[in-house]
């Protein structure tokens, strides 16, 4: 007997479930693989064991000499944090103005801000490398923070602008009619209403700053090295120290996973700068 339309639909649904599970598996394997290695001993890594006695030894080792990952952790935290602290207030002001007013040359400015995001990082970093060499900012956290602003600002402005666009004007206009000044409106009305959006943008920018690689690779060498660059520490003469690399990898990625899960709803909007809602 031929299948009814509904039966066909049901078997197609079952096939879909299988495909989804396979996709989820492929998505997770590289992460699980590295997470497992982080808890393996050196010997277990080389024996490809699927079952092993987990150890926290690797996490202890990476924070000891000669690796001292805590310095990189500190650098990464400071750099990402200060970048965000600088970028968000500036971006919020600009985003409000772009959202609520018509400025002369607004479109040009907005496109320019958008475009800077797409400039290859190598183009940005070369002049900074030369300049920092001359004024002594190479291998400093401050230098790295300044350059990181170039990638974080466009995201922050566009993202926060998107959130403010979504706040109805009525409340602000009511406050203006009730006698508030524009600055009072921004402080008392806009900031509280846009707060979730601003926090989201801040977390988003923190992740970008934390994962940033090329600038740190070129502009730091010893004192200001961040976590992603610190991975290179674990390349030894006899080959990569995978168990330690994996432990460092966990330290890099787990905090970002947590942050990403918090703001997951807004990730797409942020990355596409409002081209897709």
């Amino acid at each position: 007997m031929a299948l009814t339309g509904k039966q066909k639909k049901q078997s197609w649904n079952a096939l879909q479930i299988v495909l989804i599970l396979i996709a989820a598996f492929i998505m997770l394997v590289p992460i699980v693989w590295i997470a497992m290695a982080a808890f393996k001993t050196h010997v277990d890594v080389y024996q490809l064991k699927l079952f092993f006695a987990p150890t926290l030894e690797n996490f202890k080792t990476v924070f000891q000499a000669p690796y001292h990952l805590e310095q990189k952790l500190f650098n990464s935290t400071i750099v990402a944090f200060v970048t965000v602290v600088l970028a968000i207030p500036i971006a919020t002001c600009a985003a409000y103005s772009f959202s609520r007013f018509t400025l002369r040359g607004q479109t040009v400015l907005l496109v320019m801000i958008l475009a800077t995001q797409f400039v290859p990082a190598v183009v940005i970093v070369l002049p900074f490398f030369v300049m920092f060499r001359d004024i002594g900012l190479l291998d400093t956290r401050l230098g790295l923070i300044l350059v990181n602003l170039s990638i974080v600002m466009p995201f922050a402005i566009w993202m926060i602008k998107g959130f403010i666009d979504g706040i109805p004007m009525d409340t602000e206009e009511a406050a203006l009619v009730d006698g508030s000044t524009r600055m009072q409106v921004i402080r008392n009305i806009v900031l509280p209403m846009a707060a979730p959006g601003i926090v989201t943008a801040a977390i988003f920018c923190f992740i970008i700053g934390w994962n940033e690689f090329l600038f740190a690779l070129i502009l730091t060498s010893k004192d200001a090295v961040t976590l992603p660059i610190g991975l290179a520490l674990f390349k030894a003469e006899e080959g990569d120290l995978w168990n330690l690399l994996a432990a460092a990898g966990i330290i890099i990625m787990v905090p970002m996973f947590v942050l990403a899960l918090i703001i997951q709803k807004h990730f797409v909007q942020g990355m596409t700068m409002g081209a897709v809602r």
Partner: peptide
């Protein structure tokens, strides 16, 4: 919601992970 996880992984670390695999 799992999809967000690989996406938050730094590209450098993705490189390391694949080299490992």
């Amino acid at each position: 919601s799992l999809l967000i996880i690989p996406f938050a992984m730094s590209p450098a670390l993705i490189g390391v992970s694949f080299r490992f695999m």
